[in-house]
């Protein structure tokens, strides 16, 4: 019983923290290019190509924020 309570509390805190981070820090570093926006060639370090995953911004919206934006867009368009 107590364990469940603690577990629920932890989950709630984590969820709140995630929601908060979606608001005040909606972007995180791109995990593909590691926030560098470019893929560096392994053979020639001077050559590089843009990261397509983050459209060479090095940043990606958090999943939660992305979902929230979609929900809002759908709501607004409806």
């Amino acid at each position: 019983m107590r364990g469940t309570l603690v577990a629920t509390g932890v989950v709630v805190v984590i969820a709140l923290g995630y929601v908060l981070s979606c608001i005040i820090r909606p972007f995180r570093d791109c995990w593909v290019c590691d926030g560098k926006a470019h893929h560096r060639s392994k053979r020639n370090p001077k050559l590089s190509r843009p990261c397509r995953w983050c459209r060479s911004t090095g940043k990606r919206l958090r999943i939660g924020r992305r979902a929230w934006n979609r929900v809002r867009r759908v709501q607004r368009d409806a």
């Binding site: 608001i23 909606p26 972007f27 911004t57 090095g58 940043k59 990606r60 919206l61 924020r65 992305r66 934006n69 809002r72």
Partner: peptide, 15 residues
């Protein structure tokens, strides 16, 4: 303004 940028998925402006 930052929220607006996040809504539009515009990391440059946000940054």
């Amino acid at each position: 303004l930052r929220q607006e940028a996040a809504n539009k998925n515009d990391p440059h402006t946000w940054q």
